[in-house]
Design a protein around this nucleic acid. Structure first.
Lengths: 114, 114
DNA sequence: GTCTTGCTTAGTCATGGGGCTAAGTATCAT
DNA sequence: ATGATACTTAGCCCCATGACTAAGCAAGAC
């Protein structure tokens, strides 16, 4: 509409896959090497690595290689952006009456919906 | 990992497109007919309609046809599911210390990360 | 040095997503 | 009845995604 937001695109896109969400859930219990993350997923390693790359490009995880092991950890800042995107809509389900006009105002204030 | 969640897939997928997020933002100011929604988007109508279909299949909007006009409205329940999915991760950015173990517990309790 | 481990790169393939045009159908206006 | 309006369906095109195998490479074990 007014402005595109490619980073939000990548963010939601990254979350639109069960393997990738599972990786995030796994990483929620702390950093882990690729092989640990891959173990539960019945998938060839290169295929799995693509998912890791997608998550990293979306900014949802970071990784560092030490020796021959690459360790991944969650980068929760991006999840916070989803929360932020969600915020203007929240009145819609927390109140009985939608209060559309107020909502429109907050959506126009910062065009996070575009 | 344990169980797939196709509806979460569709939900995030639907949000991974700026046109579709713009439609949601538009609908936040109240129900609107297709043509109103389509107007700001420089796109052929059939292409735009696909987006509407995706949103509707994801459960993010509903629509009813009356006469020759189809009117769409937001269905915020699905947005709430995103909020729910986000919930177990929220401690990660609201506290300084991650408290990984607690988080893992809540993620295993209901496998919303799969 | 040789072998194993843990990624990494390269290349292929099938499917699906997002765009288009063209043509169809059902209302509503005149 | 005619014509405009508001979708709707059908079909095509291209590129991105998600999977695979095969082969490469660097680090650690022995």
């Amino acid at each position: 509409m007014t402005k595109q937001d490619p980073t939000l695109d990548a963010l939601f896109q990254a979350l639109a896959d069960p393997t990738r969400r599972a990786v995030l859930a796994h990483l929620a219990s702390g950093p882990a090497p690729i092989s640990d993350l891959a173990a539960p997923h019945d998938m060839a390693l290169p295929s799995f690595l693509r998912h890791i790359t997608v998550l990293e490009e979306a900014g949802l995880i970071t990784s560092r290689k030490s020796g021959r092991v690459r360790t991944c950890k969650l980068a929760p800042a991006r999840l916070r952006e989803i929360e932020a995107w969600l915020t203007p809509y929240r009145p819609l389900w927390t109140r009985e009456k939608p209060r559309y006009s107020q909502l429109a105002k907050s959506l126009y204030a910062k065009p996070s919906g575009t």
